[in-house]
Design a protein around this nucleic acid. Structure first.
Lengths: 174, 174
DNA sequence: GAGTGATTGTTACGGCCGTAACAATCTCCT
DNA sequence: AGGAGATTGTTACGGCCGTAACAATCACTC
């Protein structure tokens, strides 16, 4: 494995430079807030792009499609509105994702007996096999991403993220 | 401020349920790896959506457009290829982003004397004012997101993220 | 000096996502 | 029973992003 120090990474070098520049500015400039938000969003972006290109695209699918199928795998047949709520995405986005997965034969729509407005999305046998295979690959790749941290450090990182999530700011009041 | 516990959040409740389910599965299922990756990507997604809807859309712009302008604000006129490298995005994406910003009068393209292939993107006066204003709002919103953590905890979180970024896995060898 | 290979920016195409608007349906209150 | 209001899923539209292919230009070697 090739050794790569932080100064060789254009993105990390930029972040360090930006932090220095902000440190020399008066408030509301906040180098710590910038650095935290930047690295959080940047790491997430890199992980998403990596999982997409290394795991899911080679199989002919996408990461958002996998995440939806993974939820169906754990939860069983589920209404799009509930999927949207869990995923914090719009119902329209779920509709589009289900359309693509249905077109590829991975998911099917079923009517809900109690409510004629509602629909349930459910994995097909092909979809279930697809989830199992991609899940194994994705897990291995996720593990590779965090090998730099010890198990304790990974646990601390997870707990800090959960605490931020549990205390998220309110939306603008209507 | 309304009190909201984790069990009321459908997304966190799902994550806790998924972790339990994975804990009962044989390898390669890895509840810790899942939990860390899930919360990282999910938090980043929520912060991105929040900054977009609370800060930038009300001003008529977008978060990706702001991030590009912010880099130009710190770095001065910069070639798209370098912006793509720093941002870990494709040159095509930079072209599209610069097109939108140029259409809105926030950024302009300039030829580079030494290299007739190259172009420099540079902020217009309107673009510079736009960055200053949005930067103040974005910083305040970023600070709100992390009020649940103490300054020390925020520092720990940032350091852990940077260490993961500095030790990212290799792409598939060509 | 000519030619091979690399680099830069762009375009075309498809997938993802949000907002807004809409019809169908359900809920609930009177 | 009936009607106002909420909910569900969908469609239309625009913005963002990646890959692939392309022309123009540069760099480097022979």
């Amino acid at each position: 494995m090739r050794k790569t120090s932080a100064v060789e990474r254009p993105d990390l070098k930029y972040a360090a430079y930006a932090r220095e520049r902000l440190a020399a500015m008066p408030p509301p400039a906040d180098p710590e807030a910038f650095s935290l938000a930047y690295h959080l969003l940047h790491l997430s972006y890199l992980v998403v792009a990596d999982l997409e290109s290394q795991v899911h695209r080679p199989r002919g699918w996408t990461l958002p499609g996998f995440r939806l199928m993974f939820k169906l795998w754990l939860l069983g047949p589920t209404q799009p509105a509930r999927l949207a709520e869990i995923s914090a995405m719009s119902r329209a986005a779920v509709t589009n994702a289900v359309n693509t997965l249905e077109r590829d034969g991975l998911v099917e729509r079923r009517p809900v007996p109690d409510d004629r407005r509602a629909v349930e999305a459910a994995l097909t046998p092909k979809g279930e096999q697809a989830v199992r295979e991609a899940f194994a690959d994705q897990t291995r790749r996720e593990q590779q991403w965090f090998t730099a941290l010890s198990p304790d450090e990974r646990s601390v990182l997870t707990d800090l993220l959960v605490r931020v999530l549990a205390n998220r700011p309110q939306d603008t009041e209507t």
